[in-house]
Design a protein around this nucleic acid. Structure first.
Lengths: 147, 147
DNA sequence: GACGAGGTTTACGTTAACGTAAAGTGCTTG
DNA sequence: CAAGCACTTTACGTTAACGTAAACCTCGTC
């Protein structure tokens, strides 16, 4: 996802740091502030599939993106199973049969509904937090402390 | 929270269904689509503290609100411990000492930061879901199915 | 008075998502 | 070549948030 689909500026200078191409597990772990164990676990759960160079895992740009998406999903409360459901189907898309694709669309609609409900939940919880905040500050003022 | 602080229309007819006053555990469970076990567990974790009438638990309006807030927090990925941290401090507010109140303000700011990040996460994930959706529909069209 | 529908406690079971420890491999550096 | 560092596999441990089962009250009612 989010990969540029067409080389818009093919004639540019290419002076950019040029995507590192690949990362070790430790590098990725530091980038995202997780442990290597977590990354290996995600692989075991079918969310990542790095190349091997001998024994060692080699992660490429695509893997990094997948990890990023996975962690974002987690922050939003999705389970690894749910995340895998979308991520793997996405990869199976090009050769996917129609039934699979329709299923994918269903899942996507589902997730989006989920997000919409979360937006509403956030809105409500914000109001409540603000409310508690105001009350706390008032009590503090009544105690003589300036907030 | 969300309790009306002043009786704006004190002279009204009071013809409303008049807050049920109390609920059984089964009623609450059905209202929020959880099991009684869940509600008892939340009590055990210090999130609820219903009255007892003999052996039976009696939940009042306040308890219902707390349960609602708790479940909302859960949907947003907060742990029961985090939720308790806010909810119980809120109750301890009136007689709370200054240090506790400042601590509460800290926690609130923390939660709000959390929510802001979630908003951004939702925005990004929405875009990605839309992206995948579009691609899937294109593949479907290329297969001759009208989406 | 048997019974079913609700409630209760106690306690062990389960799942997800890792943590942690042990033991081994491979490189490069003093 | 010993030491250290980063990686590997295997496997058991842990925590949160309940599920599930057993065994028990206590009503209203048939």
């Amino acid at each position: 996802m989010t990969q540029p689909s067409a080389p818009a500026k093919a004639a540019s200078q290419e002076a950019l740091p040029r995507q590192h191409r690949h990362y070790t597990i430790g590098e990725l772990a530091r980038m995202f502030e997780v442990t290597p164990r977590t990354i290996r676990f995600y692989e075991q759960e079918g969310l990542l599939a790095p190349r091997r160079e001998g024994q060692k895992r080699i992660y490429r740009e695509k893997d990094r993106v997948r990890l990023k998406l996975t962690l974002r999903g987690k922050r939003l409360g999705f389970s690894l199973a749910e995340i895998r459901e979308v991520v793997t189907m996405y990869d199976a898309m090009p050769d996917g049969n129609a039934r699979q694709l329709w299923r994918l669309l269903e899942i996507l609609a589902d997730k989006r509904d989920n997000l919409e409900r979360q937006l509403e939940d956030i809105r409500l919880m914000r109001m409540e937090l603000d409310d508690v905040d105001h009350r706390a500050r008032e009590v503090l003022r009544s105690l003589g402390h300036e907030a």
